[in-house]
Design a protein around this nucleic acid. Structure first.
Lengths: 232, 232
DNA sequence: GTATATTTTATGCATTCGTTCGAATAAGGG
DNA sequence: CCCTTATTCGAACGAATGCATAAAATATAC
């Protein structure tokens, strides 16, 4: 198979994947028909069955490919920040995790499709896709949770997991629902601008992550809010 | 067939709305057919046309009703914290906003359906529903953004909006499904537990909101003895 | 009782969906 | 040239969709 086609000479398989990524991100899985995809790609609709076995196979292919790219970018950034055996700072770990999510336009055409697709999977809750998410995501998650925990020795493992969970929420919501804040701010806050988003998100997250532990050992009814770390 | 004696006499309209809320939250809008809803409700499928004019009308009805409930709960909590002309603290404002989102089981049957539906709207991006979101949510949002700004005079209006945006992300993501965090923690972190979530989320958010301003140049106007209201 | 209004049911319709199948077209080796 | 293989195409299938309508059942008023 001659997979080294030029970007001008694109195989039908690639056209389908590109259109599928675009349309799935825009209108959801059930909201797009294979005819829509084929039409957008300019090929015959039967080719999705020929190349991917069906609509689900096409989505799986698109998703895993995108996930791999995102995972690699994150890993590479984290590796850069860990060069020379150095332990990356909290900001660096967060930046390594967030940046590829915000600007996943590297391969596509300015569309941040992966978090959108990911959000759609969560919403439409297809069983196959839930499995895909676990397969492609848990690996990267564990690495970053570990790196975060190393930066935050005052937190329990569960604290880190919770805050990682909140971090994911900010990322996905930024990628999927940027309409409202843009309207409320009359366009001055634009979550589709990766640099601006990062500039606001990182300090917010750094402060949130470095907050005192909220874990069980700490739930004494102490009056003082910023009480120190409780050893046991 | 005659409907067997239900525990309460529920009109077919209410049955439809209940089933629609449940199913929309579970499988999305396009993922559920009118027949599915009618079958789940135990009524004839033509009744959704009779009562709501169609599938979209049913969704709009469900959504606006749920939205009204949530908005009222939030407003009531904020009013309680503002009793006697007192200015609520940051934690109180956050709690008033978050709590009803996390435990929207008050009226339903333990399902936190509204954020789920909201998330689906964002994903499937229907034009009608985007309008619904703006209509039902912006009002509440503006009130809380204002209350937050009053607690955080060191921030610009845009800072507050950004962090409010991140706050929404954490809520929606938490409510959108049983997520990886539960698996990664072997069940010890359970986002479906409102109390546990709040115990972790509030300190995280308080720290994030009170972080120093990230605005470029820190150009907060009206510094010194600030006029309370934020200029619009 | 009858008459009227409301609610429910049964059924059909036009459309769209994902998928499949067989026939064309292209490419390459003998 | 023929033969094999890979790709593309047009057409069609059965199933499911949202929606509309007429008739039946039920409630309500007189």
């Amino acid at each position: 198979m001659k997979s080294e086609a030029n970007q001008v000479d694109q195989t039908s398989r690639e056209k389908l994947m590109k259109s599928a990524e675009h349309l799935f991100a825009e209108r959801g899985y059930d909201g797009v028909s294979v005819r829509d995809i084929a039409n957008d790609a300019g090929v015959n609709s039967a080719l999705v069955g020929y190349y991917f076995g069906g609509k689900e196979g096409l989505l799986a292919e698109v998703y895993t490919q995108r996930c791999g790219l995102l995972r690699d970018e994150r890993a590479q950034l984290l590796a850069e920040y860990s060069a020379g055996g150095k332990t990356p700072s909290l900001e660096e770990v967060l930046e390594a995790f967030i940046t590829p999510s915000l600007e996943s336009a590297r391969n596509g055409e300015g569309r941040r499709s992966l978090p959108h697709i990911r959000s759609i999977l969560a919403a439409e809750n297809s069983s196959l896709l839930e499995k895909l998410v676990a397969e492609n995501f848990d690996e990267s998650s564990k690495i970053f949770v570990k790196a975060l925990g190393k930066c935050l020795p005052h937190l329990t493992h569960e604290d880190v997991l919770w805050r990682f969970h909140f971090l994911l929420g900010t990322i996905y919501y930024t990628a999927t629902g940027p309409h409202r804040i843009k309207a409320l701010s009359r366009g001055r806050c634009d979550p589709s601008d990766p640099a601006a988003t990062k500039e606001e998100l990182i300090p917010f997250l750094v402060a949130g992550f470095t907050a005192p532990s909220a874990a069980k050992g700490n739930k004494r009814r102490g009056r003082g809010r910023g009480n120190g770390t409780v050893k046991s």
